[in-house]
């Protein structure tokens, strides 16, 4: 099997599995809805655009940690052992990363719509903001997939994933917040070019490092 068909098959498996056991994706959606609702309820109409943007990205951070936590912890040991006899480490990582990217982009937009629905904010450049959400979702997926693989091997998985990922997501979170602020203020897109470029380069670097490191990790 070539690399691409391997990744394709694994990705299909992830999506089918998700579709079959709906509790995972439904749980995530409910998590997003309740979190957004509670925050909107707490702020009511008093939220400023700057705070709105920051709160949105903090919600994204928590949603990402919750969503991506499952990517390696959801499988039983027997399942992953069987899987690893069938496919190489790079195909496994690529499929997980692509699946997480898909999941994060979709839940990112759902979070965005829910948050706009409950507490509307005037956006100067909505399309740009959508672009930042897209890149941010990809960034979370790239950043957290390997961390989730690391944490899934340990005993206190949930705490460990949060503690390991908070400091490591800071660069992309700060960049996404500042690009998002530019979009809300409706600044000319050329002002955000640096941020978007950084996010893109960051995703590529992190993905590359993950691909180098994952083969050392996957059978542990």
């Amino acid at each position: 099997m070539s690399f691409v068909t391997e990744v394709g098959a694994l990705l299909k498996k992830e999506i089918l599995l998700e579709w079959k056991q709906k509790y995972a994706i439904n749980g995530l959606l409910l998590y997003v809805a309740s979190m957004v609702f509670v925050i909107a309820l707490a702020f009511r109409q008093e939220i400023s655009p700057v705070a709105w943007n920051v709160v949105f990205w903090i919600i994204m951070l928590f949603v990402a940690i919750n969503a991506i936590a499952k990517s390696f912890m959801g499988e039983s040991e027997g399942q992953s052992l069987y899987l690893y006899t069938l496919a190489g480490p790079h195909a496994v990582l690529a499929s997980k990363m692509l699946y997480n990217a898909l999941l994060m982009v979709i839940t990112g937009f759902i979070t965005l719509f829910a948050f706009v629905f409950f507490s509307p904010v005037h956006m100067g450049d909505p399309w740009m903001y959508c672009g930042v959400v897209l890149l941010g979702g990809l960034g979370f997926a790239a950043n957290l997939t390997l961390v989730s693989a690391i944490a899934s091997r340990a005993q206190n998985k949930a705490t460990l994933l949060a503690v390991l990922s908070f400091p490591l997501t800071i660069p992309m979170l700060l960049t996404a917040i500042s690009a998002g602020k530019n979009a809300i203020d409706g600044l000319d897109r050329s002002f955000s070019l640096d941020e978007l470029l950084f996010l893109g380069v960051f995703i590529v670097i992190i993905a590359m490092v993950s691909f180098i490191l994952f083969p050392f990790l996957w059978r542990e």
Partner: peptide
């Protein structure tokens, strides 16, 4: 093994951090 992987991953993220912050 796992902590070595995390150590290298963390060190790789420090470089972009040094530029962005």
């Amino acid at each position: 093994k796992i902590s070595a992987v995390y150590n290298i991953f963390g060190a790789a993220l420090i470089i972009p951090m040094y530029y962005i912050i």
